[in-house]
């Protein structure tokens, strides 16, 4: 046999998204992340149904006119309440996991050097990995309301979406509100995704990357809770992370969400840009 002078190598054919999806989807932590997202509404609904602490009315919280109190009003409200419970921590950790673990775990398995020597161009590797990380994140964020809606339907029936502000939405109106809430939560978590992705490139320890992102977001949340900082807090990337609550008003006020989305996207872009810059020039010694 004779050595081929040229190969059919094409840079744009390296690391197809399908391949990276298979590589990530077969991982146990992907499965666990999705199971957690499904388990949360199941556990909450069981706690409400069979919990003994609420003598009357089987309600969460004080049964007052807040979002949590309305959780049992129907499937749609249950889904929105699960967003309220999960968006500040569970979904944050999951997004940080999908985006922070992706490059660092390849480094820790020593497989990164073989992918780069294949060669998968460095920027393409980052691009494909970020896309897959973000799609898996979006999938988890979408799974939460879908699972919650189905569980809520079984447990609490199909009441219309009610807002603590007194509004009641039709089914289609409620559907777009919940979709918009999910999308906004995804956008607001892009900041965490960006930090996690940057850390993933800077470090070879997968859990270090995820942990660093979660810690940074939590520090930002703590700073945001310190009222003494006044209007300085408006510049924190997580200041508007709960602005999706505005979507529960009859007339949606977009200003907070626009600001929150802008910060999150810019912070994410800065992190990703720096990650690319560093990865371009990195000596891969892992």
């Amino acid at each position: 046999m004779s050595a081929p002078e040229h190969t059919s190598y094409r840079p744009e054919a390296t690391m197809p998204l399908r391949v990276e999806f298979v590589r990530q989807l077969r991982r146990r932590r992907t499965l666990i992340a999705y199971l957690l997202v499904i388990a949360l509404p199941i556990m909450v609904s069981l706690a409400v149904k069979f919990g003994s602490n609420s003598g009357s009315g089987r309600r969460l919280g004080g049964g007052s006119a807040d979002l949590v109190g309305l959780a049992t009003a129907g499937a749609a409200n249950f889904a929105v309440t699960m967003f309220f419970f999960a968006s500040s921590f569970l979904l944050l950790v999951i997004v940080a996991l999908f985006c922070g673990d992706t490059v660092a775990s390849e480094a820790s398995w020593s497989s990164l050097r073989y992918l780069l020597a294949a060669p998968i161009p460095r920027r393409r590797l980052l691009k494909q990995k970020l896309i897959v990380g973000l799609v898996l994140s979006l999938g988890a964020i979408a799974t939460l309301p879908i699972a919650s809606f189905i569980i809520g339907l079984i447990a609490f029936g199909s009441g219309p979406l009610e807002s603590p502000l007194g509004a009641t939405f039709t089914f289609t109106e409620g559907l777009w509100r919940i979709t918009a809430i999910g999308l906004y939560i995804f956008v607001s978590l892009l900041f965490a995704a960006g930090i996690a992705f940057l850390m993933s490139v800077l470090t070879d320890a997968p859990l270090g990357a995820v942990g660093a992102a979660v810690v940074l977001v939590i520090v930002s949340n703590i700073l945001n809770a310190i009222e003494a900082l006044g209007s300085l807090r408006e510049w924190l990337p997580t200041h508007y992370s709960q602005a999706w609550l505005d979507l529960l008003a009859t007339d949606v006020v977009w200003s907070s969400m626009a600001r929150g989305a802008a910060y999150s996207v810019v912070a994410c872009a800065l992190c990703v840009a720096y990650a690319v810059y560093r990865f371009d020039r990195k000596d891969v010694v892992s």
């Binding site: 190969t7 190598y9 054919a13 690391m15 197809p16 391949v19 992918l115 998968i120």
Partner: peptide, 15 residues
């Protein structure tokens, strides 16, 4: 699976 996915990631689909 490792070999298969590595090859499919290598961008040499016609070899």
């Amino acid at each position: 699976q490792n070999l298969d996915l590595y090859w499919r990631a290598a961008g040499r689909s016609h070899d």
